[in-house]
Structures are given as C-alpha cells and as structure tokens.
Amino acid sequence: MRPIIGITSYVLPASWGVWHDLPSALVPYDYVAAVREAGGRAVLLPPDDEDADVLTALDGLVLAGGPDLEPRWYGAEREPLTESHPERDEGEFLLARRALEIDLPLLGVCRGMQLLTVAAGGRLHQHLPDRLGHEKHRPAPGVYGEQEARFEPGSRIAALMGDDVAIQCYHHQGVADPGSLTITGRTEDGVPETIEDPARRFVLGVQWHPEVVRDRRLFGALVEAAR
C-alpha cells in the first residue's frame, strides 16, 4: 500500500460545464499529480475546523498554497493589501499543529510554509514589496517570479536541491520570524524561501511552487519519509 498523503484544499465558487459559481473544495491538480508521481496516494482535505482526527489515517501532509493568513494568528493587525480567507485558516492550523506534535511528515508550499511558520510560533511580513522595494517574488498577476535561492550547507533542502537553485515564486507575504523552525534558504534579497525543523522526521516549508514542475525531489522526499 502506498503512503497516503493528505493535501489541504481551497474552498471557492468554481464554474465548469453547465455549473456556475458552486462553492467547491478544490486544489490545483498539479499537487495531486506531484504526489502520485512521487509514489504516494493523494487525498484532498476539505477545510474542517472540528478536529485533526483525519491525520490518524494519513502518512504525510501537504499544506498547499492559497490566500494570505488572517494576521490575528500571529498577533498582528491586518494591513491594507492582506487578502485572507478565514474559512481555511482554523482547520489548517489544527492540522499543522497536530502534525508537528505527532511528527507526521509535512511539506508546506507557499501559504503552507507561512502557515507552518505561524503554527511554530513565528510571524509574517504582510506585504514584501513595502520592505524590499521590488516585486520579484510576484511580478504580475498569474506570473511566477523566476529567482535563485541560496541554501544553507548541510540543510535538508540543500541535499535535495543540489546545485539547482532556480525557484518559481508567487507570493507577496514572507516569513519575518520562523518561530521554532530554522530558515535554510533565502533569495539574494534575504527573503526566507525555505524553513525546516531538523529535529523532526520531515518538516519542510518552501515559499516557491514545486508542484508546478511536479518536483520529485521534494515530493519524493515527503513520500519516502511517509513510508
């Protein structure tokens, strides 16, 4: 039996065929394919703030990308450009915190990395361009920022990525304080692009989008850890 990997999902009014704007649980198919191609069996986890009990059936967890977190989760006031989606936050925090507690293998992507950070006691910058003076991490709507990362020698991400430092970013928030996690990768402007917890089996957050290229290094490492 393949490891079962849960993927958190969006809830959005979606349209297809004859249907218009039906509130739907959905996740870009790239995530599902990335898990499958890495040897895992993906199931999608619609938001649910009741309990994290679904984790007992899972071998690993992907915290997927999506909208900004509600800043109250890290004790901040909402800034003008923050676009949160509170319906997802509560259930995903339950999952992230419990997954850390029980040392479930965990990959956080973009929003997922930010969620992981906040679940580990960290904080976020709400709009990076205000601090950086550039928009390289999200150049335009629907356009990934092609960037290069510098990975900490000896880190998990350095071992997984090797000499390949090209990443595809699409975010306007970023990690300000990693909490109990360790920052192991940054772009040249200093923005954290990778966080890890070396004390746990597999806890990795990346600010870029490895699912888009179905990156077997990262998803493969998650699935291996989940076996």
Binding site: S9, L22, P23, A25, V27, P28, Y29, V32
Partner: peptide
C-alpha cells in the same frame, strides 16, 4: 485543472458526523 468537488457533499458528510476526504480519479 483541479481536483474538486462541490462543498455540498463535504458538508453533508461533516454534518452527519463523518470526516470527508476527496479521492481524485487519476
């Protein structure tokens, strides 16, 4: 391209005491 299902199914499962996960057909 998305893995997706209308939330009505998810809510029906959660409202009757289950925990829903989505199984994609791939």
């Amino acid at each position: 391209m998305a893995g997706m299902l209308p939330m009505t199914y998810v809510r029906a499962v959660h409202a009757t005491g289950g925990r829903a996960v989505l199984i994609t057909p791939d």
